[in-house]
Design a protein around this nucleic acid. Structure first.
Length: 258
DNA sequence: ATGGCTGAGCTACTCAGA
């Protein structure tokens, strides 16, 4: 089973790029972040036409997450955490992999910049609440996949110039510790366990020729609960979509489990 | 280098992103 996570930076502006990508890469499940549209304007038909169901949690202009799937997803939920700002940042549901029931949690973590503002506090609180909920699920023995745009640079190797980001909401130790805390609840960062020393990115800024210079960062992740490690087949960051015309600033990360 | 770009909402410009 192929599951892909991609921050598309507007599902409507990117719809042709996305459907072309689906035709090439044939995911079973595509997790989208930053869809940036209300539910009534979501391009359901475009996904239907290539054979997929859409489960969406949209919002006007900002945020928005969606699960695009060939097979039905059970028990879709849009209230994984209580968000006082009511932002559309988490959608989760259940799939079946052989005898295992798996909870898939698609997330778009707040950016948190600038750091000396309420936005940073919101990110910290958001992560705190998210980790608490995940901990509850793990204590019940659930099989869990968390995927999406974490807006966290886990380690120095995960950005082209760490010095520039150590006081940024993506690279601050306090935030990186939240990522480690999540791992310590009982997860693996699938890309990093499969690629111990490799320096690859999932995001490149639009400006300053960041893509051409490979000034990127690895902030989109697949975290699998320890009870799913044996099911991991491969993980791949697919840079091709970032090289296309009118690209998202993020590129997809692709997981295969069996 | 707190942004040199991009998108949404909207029609001039702000907000947000990372």
């Amino acid at each position: 089973m192929k599951i892909i996570s991609w921050n598309v930076n507007s599902v409507r502006a990117r719809i042709d790029n996305i459907t072309n990508y689906i035709k090439d890469d044939k995911p079973d499940i595509l997790l989208l972040q930053e869809t940036k549209t209300q539910d009534e304007n979501f391009p359901y038909e475009n996904f239907e036409n290539v054979g997929y169901n859409s489960y969406i949690f949209g919002q006007k202009s900002y945020n928005g997450v969606a699960i695009i799937s060939k097979l039905p997803i059970k028990n879709i939920s849009k209230d994984f955490i209580k968000d006082e700002k009511k932002q559309a940042r988490v959608i989760n549901g259940e799939i079946q992999l052989k005898k295992k029931k798996i909870e898939i949690i698609n997330i778009y973590v707040p950016n948190g910049n600038p750091i000396n503002t309420e936005k940073y506090e919101y990110k910290k609180n958001w992560l705190k609440k998210f980790i608490a909920q995940v901990k509850k699920k793990i204590s019940l023995g659930s099989n869990i996949i968390i995927a999406g745009d974490f807006n966290i640079i886990p380690e120095e190797i995960d950005v082209y110039d760490f010095k520039r980001y150590e006081n940024d909401a993506l690279g601050k130790l306090e935030i990186r510790k939240k990522f480690r805390e999540l791992l310590n609840v009982g997860f693996v960062d699938v890309y990093r366990i499969k690629n111990k020393k490799k320096q690859e990115y999932t995001f490149w800024d639009y400006f300053a020729g960041s893509w051409q210079k490979n000034y990127g960062m690895r902030i989109d992740h697949f975290l699998l609960s320890n009870n799913l490690i044996e099911n991991i087949s491969s993980i791949n960051i697919n840079k091709k979509p970032r090289s296309k015309l009118k690209p998202s600033d993020h590129t997809p990360i692709e997981l295969i489990i069996n």
